Simulated scan of single mutants.
Amino acid sequence: MLPITENTELLPYGQLATRQWLLTQGVEVYQIDNSLKSRKFESLARGVVARPGVPVEWQGVLASLYRMFECPVYVGGASALAQHGLAHYIQLQTVVDIYAAQPAPSWISKLSCNVEFRWHTTVQIWDAEKLLVANSLKLVPLHQGCWLLASPEQAYLELLAKVPSAISFEQADNIMQSLVNLSPRRLDVLLHACKHVLAKRLFFFFADRYQHAWRNKLQPKSYDLGAGKRSVIKGGNFNKAYQITVPEAFSG
């Protein structure tokens, strides 16, 4: 193995690594300490190091998580839609939505990347095994690495799981209006993998409003939409088709 200061595979420029992860890769404690003392490494947060000279941007953080985590860690939800050019109101420069099955590492909130990392656990949204079949995560190339980006289909369902707590009903509706080219085949797999009943009901509610070409290829009865009424908006009007309350402006 190359000395750690020369091994850019373990710690590429523009990315980061935790001490714990480096130790699992065969790096010795003294090597990390010596690299910090000689300023060949710099400390970004407690237990987190990077190579000096190249700032670690949010893409580099995602590429680092892709290397270090056992489960997929990806940009999803509103941020993924913004990356695809489908959510213009979202300022990706200030917030990046990260999705993973594991909890957020404590150090991620300590990084200075000029963005806020908003971490979402996927356990309540996705059936992990079924989600893998969807093949809905895209590898985005980065210098000496890559990071993961959710497809528009997956990202929109993730966004709907945040209505109305983080995303307004009106914003979700505006985005659906622009989702002309979704893949019905991918949507079919994702809707089967999605465990969030309200997100699926909202998906079909908004899809019915715009009747894009792909809508006719999906039948709501094919998916588990749960039972009973669900309240989206307090004091809203009741939609019988999907058993949800919606704002008065969206009824009728």
Results as ranks from 00 to 15, higher is better:
100 A>N: 10
91 Q>K: 14
121 T>V: 15
82 A>Q: 14
93 Q>F: 11
73 V>R: 08
54 V>Q: 06
58 W>F: 05
41 F>E: 02
117 F>H: 07
25 Q>K: 08
84 H>T: 02
17 A>D: 12
59 Q>L: 10
33 D>A: 08
140 V>P: 00
124 Q>A: 12
88 H>N: 10
123 V>N: 09
107 W>N: 05
70 E>S: 14
100 A>G: 14
110 K>Q: 11
34 N>K: 10
144 Q>R: 13
81 L>F: 08
77 G>I: 07
20 Q>A: 15
115 V>C: 13
68 M>S: 08
29 V>S: 15
93 Q>G: 15
141 P>K: 08
81 L>P: 09
99 Y>K: 08
25 Q>S: 03
69 F>N: 06
30 Y>T: 12
107 W>Q: 05
64 S>A: 14
72 P>I: 07
142 L>D: 03
132 L>P: 00
33 D>E: 12
31 Q>K: 13
84 H>V: 04
120 H>L: 03
141 P>S: 09
49 V>N: 00
62 L>G: 03
134 A>L: 00
70 E>H: 12
143 H>Y: 01
66 Y>I: 00
63 A>M: 05
133 V>Q: 13
123 V>G: 01
27 V>W: 13
26 G>L: 11
24 T>Q: 15
88 H>T: 11
95 V>H: 13
116 E>S: 11
100 A>M: 09
125 I>A: 11
50 A>D: 00
110 K>L: 05
66 Y>F: 14
42 E>G: 00
75 V>G: 03
56 V>I: 03
31 Q>A: 15
55 P>H: 04
102 Q>S: 10
49 V>C: 01
53 G>K: 02
39 R>E: 14
128 A>N: 02
118 R>Q: 11
55 P>Y: 04
69 F>E: 15
119 W>F: 04
30 Y>M: 09
122 T>G: 03
138 K>M: 13
135 N>T: 07
127 D>H: 10
128 A>I: 06
92 L>D: 06
24 T>D: 14
